[in-house]
Design a binder for these strands. Sequence first.
DNA 1: CTCGATGGTCAAGCTGCTTGACCATATAGT
DNA 2: ACTATATGGTCAAGCAGCTTGACCATCGAG
Lengths: 148, 148
Amino acid sequence: MQNSEAMALSAALLAVAGGLTQRINEGVIARGFEGVRPAHGFAFARLAPDGATVTDLAAHLGVTKQAASQLVDEMVRKGYAERRPHPEDARARLVVLTGRGWACTRAAEEAAAEAVREWGDVLGEREVRALGEQLLRIAPRGPIRPAW
Amino acid sequence: MQNSEAMALSAALLAVAGGLTQRINEGVIARGFEGVRPAHGFAFARLAPDGATVTDLAAHLGVTKQAASQLVDEMVRKGYAERRPHPEDARARLVVLTGRGWACTRAAEEAAAEAVREWGDVLGEREVRALGEQLLRIAPRGPIRPAW
DNA sequence: CTCGATGGTCAAGCTGCTTGACCATATAGT
DNA sequence: ACTATATGGTCAAGCAGCTTGACCATCGAG
């Protein structure tokens, strides 16, 4: 494969990723969750299962813990998360989603499903499913980093 | 397809996109082009064929023309681009890549090819090619937007 | 029961973007 | 030809989100 083809593939991937991010963000806002930015989505994803500490979150997002703490401040202020004392470590605080936070997470899933359904209209559901499996196999581990 | 599956697909796509961006950026820097940020890559892509005006660039990147102008300032300062008088419009200036700018573009293509080759090791070249075609078919038009 | 490591916050500063104002040139209307 | 409006571009100020640096509280190994 020539370099220029690899670049075209990369550009298409990044364009799809950018468009998807925008679609999800707009979909979430359209469902009544104001003041939400794409960066919050990745925080939600990390907090959803059982909550997480600020330091965990920072590592997951690939930013400093100060930045993660500010993000949590904002999510708390907007009613999506709350800080609780950590059950096993008095230094730490466990950040967990509120009911509104869970609702916002579901809204994001709905918006994502909407976008993915449109891909299905173009490619067929079978190909979309295959696409998902392939992407999972080449997805890097480590912190989630902004695409640019 | 369930919403949670669509979300998993989306997360994988964004993770791949973020990792790819980082790989390309690091690859470009490793090839001796310092002070280059991912955002520059999309500017290079727009400038490469025949140059572009600041306003074109702004529309392509989805930012204000002031922001695009600052980006061009930076690229000029670092030797990647230069401003020329526009041949057909005395108001406008045509921003074109310098030799160093072209070299940097080729370095980005090499870095992208490197990353894509690793995908080929995992998925097989046939699937990677199919992936590229599918992504092209679902890629949105309009300005390139950061993935988050 | 110290003492280095770790979780967290406060404060200050930087960078890349935005909005607002403005000038120069192009283009359409009369 | 002449004004009026639109368009390309820049300057300036402000803001949001991140960083670095300093610091305190608590943990856990010796």
